[in-house]
Nucleic acid binder design. Structure first.
Lengths: 144, 144
DNA sequence: ACATTTAGTTGACAAAATCAACTAATTATG
DNA sequence: CATAATTAGTTGATTTTGTCAACTAAATGT
């Protein structure tokens, strides 16, 4: 790997950091913070699950997550019941309100992506996705 | 653009958010925070420049930047002199210490990228960079 | 000349994240 | 079995990060 290669990769990282920032900022139009939205996303896809399971996917401090979960309970987005297998753990599920709140921010995100890319031709989109797939595949063999 | 397309794009974004997080966390092994490192990067590449010019590239609150600059002055990374063209502005330059500190974190970042990708074959690297270039090009025609 | 804008600073604050101590339940080990 | 070590989750304290608004002083526009 040459100096120039590394430079290009880092340049792309800076570039894509901005793209992601663009997308992330958009979420803040919702009443949820970025970490809250991430938790909601993981909860939605893993429910019913425990807080520990959520931590595995979002990789955040357990105390921090505990507070987010607490606030979600308070605002009626999730409910919990003791786990039968493990008396320490709580099984968490989204309430119907929780699910519909997730649906809201989820479709808002989808709409944003769509409008962000609306000017691209079908071929460009196809190529875009192709490149993303390739990148992900290449990097997945490396990660960890 | 289909539902599935959007889903793939968002999936890639989540994936790459983690990659970037991986890279960013590494910077925190240095004595500089992420925003500090970004400021250092821009300063290095734009010097001599004013705080306003830095803001254009890093897009952060000017009060926040002002404090970072203040702390950089205190620790001897940058020095400033009044601008001749604009009495309100300060021309900022990195000191030799500032430049060498930047070099440190810069080469540490480069090393990290290299070690992160060390297992990839030359062909994979080539393909990786090609995909990044394509992605950037496609997205740049859209942005803004 | 005066109003408006711009560069930068500062204080007050809010939001995000970390750390360590703690309880209670579970699992591992002699 | 007993007890030590680990794990799930909570909480308080604190730090870091980032935002907002008010302010000074210089520059620019009218």
């Amino acid at each position: 790997m040459t100096e120039k290669d590394i430079q290009k990769i880092r340049d792309f990282n800076r570039f894509y950091t901005n793209i992601i920032g663009l997308v992330d900022n958009h979420i803040l139009d919702s009443p949820y913070s970025l970490p809250e939205a991430r938790v909601l996303y993981e909860m939605y896809h893993h429910q019913p699950c425990t807080a520990s399971e959520v931590i595995l996917s979002v990789k955040m401090d357990k105390g921090y997550l505990s507070r987010i979960i607490k606030s979600f309970k308070k605002s009626g987005l999730i409910k919990s019941k003791p786990s039968k297998e493990d008396g320490r753990a709580l099984l968490l599920v989204l309430t119907s309100k929780g699910n519909s709140e997730f649906d809201k921010i989820n479709s808002a995100s989808a709409n944003q992506i769509e409008s962000l890319l609306s000017r691209l031709s079908a071929e460009k989109i196809k190529e875009l996705i192709h490149c993303m797939d390739r990148l992900k595949r290449i990097l997945t063999t490396t990660e960890q």
